[in-house]
Amino acid sequence: MDRTETLPADDAGIARAAALLREGRLVAFPTETVYGLGGDATDDRAVARIFEAKGRPRFNPLIVHLPGLEEAEVVAVFDHRARAVAGAFWPGPLTLVLPLREGAGISPLVTAGLPTVAIRVPAHPVARALLRAAGRPVAAPSANPSGRVSPTRAAHVLDGLAGRIAAVVDGGACAVGVESTILGLDGEPRLLRPGGIPAEALEAALGQPLTTGGSAAKPNAPGQLASHYAPGAMVRLNARAAETGEILVGFGPVKGDLTLSPGGDLVEAAANLFHILREADALAGPQGRIAFAPIPGHGLGRAINDRLSRAAAPRG
């Protein structure tokens, strides 16, 4: 088992991380959503190492992270809709699934052999500096063992992947706290995963409602597996009080052992979600149970409920 370096989020740390990526090694780095596990998206062996480190199913596609729209257009085919939403929400927590551009050089492991590619331009300044320094597309799923709770701090990355990856750039806590919204624009606009950009905002920008798409059996974007984001403890949803032996996670008026947001703020709840899920899991223990208070189903609440429903799904 190799030692995983913890690098500062300064010029020297970013230069070291970029050099490791160019060598085909894996580096975790902060984005505004969660920490990503980066590898050179044009290098088959580097991408294979991502799947190996995470224990991730090979049929599950990865998101390619790029520093700007100009670089994104080298990888994917944009139409007027894609340019419009990219102009409105990039850099930021939005992933677009678009037709893969011929000759883009992206490893087929990234796209799971599909004719589409998932791409995003992150807003986090450390991520943007690293992508520019690396000078190549970076495939980056969340930096955690597959199916487990996503990391929003460097310590979370090390908890799950220490010794399996070359380095983590410590850029502090992630501000958004849930993964990016995934919008499919390879046909009619489809919401493939709710996330950091509310679906209502995308519908307003596109001027039409979104359908939903994708499946757990044949995912065409990340985050569609039925059981995902799972802690060791079992999870119960929409609880207004704890049952015997449960750790209750509150929200708003429902008070608990822990709370996502005492004031019922969905932005605060999203930012706290994965960190609180880890805390509750530690308190509950491997044979314990966690109960979550009801979360409203609008705005960022849709993304929070999506993650919680997958955390509560039957385990395979």
Rank of each mutant, 00 (worst) to 15 (best):
L248P: 09
D79G: 15
A76V: 13
T42Y: 01
Q287S: 14
L206E: 09
A112Y: 04
L94G: 09
G223E: 09
E246S: 12
P294Y: 07
L283H: 02
S309L: 05
L94M: 08
V74T: 15
G316K: 07
P314D: 13
S107L: 05
R25M: 01
L37F: 12
D186A: 15
F274K: 03
L192T: 10
A280M: 01
K255R: 15
R83A: 01
N305V: 13
G297Q: 05
A216C: 13
A9P: 11
L100Q: 13
F59I: 01
D257S: 08
A9C: 12
C174A: 07
D40K: 06
G207N: 06
I106R: 01
L202M: 11
E73R: 14
R240A: 04
I106D: 08
H80A: 15
L98G: 04
S146M: 00
A269N: 03
P122M: 00
V121N: 10
E102K: 11
T212K: 08
R153W: 11
T244I: 06
F51Y: 15
V235I: 13
T211A: 15
F59A: 00
H228L: 14
R58F: 14
R236Y: 14
G39E: 13
G213P: 14
T259I: 01
G68V: 00
R315A: 13
G103D: 04
G245S: 03
H228C: 09
H65L: 07
P262R: 10
Q287G: 12
I106T: 06
